[in-house]
């Protein structure tokens, strides 16, 4: 039972980490606290659901369509809704306040559209729901795939950010946006790109979630909250921190629901979160000075 719980926890944690990595990009680089983030996740879940059940396109292929769409949609959201806010508020505190209000509105727009099209019921579909034996533990293939995808996206993003010139530019804007123009970096366009890339990761998370969980139009806020907790636990803008924090959160939730009581999972989540905030407010892997 323990190995099964750990495997389930890793799958859930991998999903949390994947979802949180997009938010940490949006918040760490574009400085947008995006409350509509989870609704982008769920929108992608619905998109995968429609592609699979109506057109018979499997979610892996569906990603090839949904991820670029997620990127484009978030690029537009930033360019139309958020860039004007970023331009007129050069200090960070004001941008955070404004972006929270603007994306809070956006949350209801996306959720409203989803409710009109899909209703408020839970949806799911059967994809790779075949049992696989991993070291004596039975696990559904779709969950295993979810974990593999989460790890693959994390590695891909890590390589992009640390091994390419453009990745260095993104990290430079996150580290010191005021200095970026001094080396010829256009902060506006880097922030727009990072926000869109974060949106594409949200979409990836949504597709992965749809493969093994049931979801509904009003569930977005759950993923926004979970992603936010993971981001803060891992340290804002810290990719590997988000990965580790996501896995920890998934493991703890699963272990608590398996061995103590399923009703206490949320309580456990927030207990860890509060403990981190009290003991290490910069996050488990964040820097003390930032």
């Amino acid at each position: 039972m323990l190995s099964s719980a750990i495997l389930t926890g890793l799958v859930l944690g991998g999903t949390y980490a994947l979802v949180a990595m997009g938010l940490t990009l949006q918040y760490g680089v574009a400085r947008i606290m995006n409350l509509a983030y989870g609704d982008i996740v769920i929108a992608a879940s619905f998109a995968a659901f429609v592609l699979f059940s109506a057109l018979g396109i499997n979610p892996l292929l569906g990603m090839l369509l949904i991820l670029p769409l997620g990127f484009a949609l978030n690029w537009l959201i930033y360019a139309i809704l958020l860039q004007p806010l970023a331009r007129r508020s050069r200090d960070r505190g004001r941008l955070e306040g404004d972006s929270i209000l603007a994306t809070f509105g956006l949350l209801f727009v996306i959720q409203g559209v989803a409710l009109v099209i899909f209703g408020s019921g839970f949806q799911s579909y059967n994809f790779l729901a075949v049992p696989v034996n991993i070291l004596g533990t039975i696990v559904a293939a779709n969950r295993l795939l979810a974990l593999v995808l989460a790890v693959a996206f994390a590695i891909g993003l890590f390589v992009l950010l640390t091994r390419t010139r453009f990745g260095t530019v993104i990290r430079a804007v996150a580290a010191n946006p005021a200095s970026a123009p001094l080396v010829g970096v256009n902060v506006d366009s880097v922030a727009r790109f990072a926000f869109a890339l974060g949106g594409a990761l949200a979409a990836a998370g949504g597709v992965v979630i749809s493969m093994y969980l049931t979801f509904s139009a009003t569930m977005g806020v759950v993923f926004t909250m979970k992603a936010l907790i993971v981001v803060i636990m891992g340290g804002v803008g810290n990719l590997m921190g988000a990965l580790a924090a996501g896995l920890i959160l998934g493991l703890v939730e699963t272990l608590v629901s398996t061995y103590i009581d399923p009703g206490l999972t949320l309580a456990a989540t927030y207990l860890i979160f509060l403990a981190v905030l009290v003991v290490r407010p910069q996050g488990l892997f964040g820097k003390a000075t930032s």
């Binding site: 260095t168 990290r171 580290a175 010191n176 200095s179 080396v183 010829g184 970096v185 820097k287």
Partner: peptide, 25 residues
Amino acid sequence: ALVPEGRGIFGDLTVAENLELGAYP
């Protein structure tokens, strides 16, 4: 090129990365 007051380097990045960014133009 401006070296601003307070230096304005990218503190979280390595020395090599800071120099690489200098050649971004």
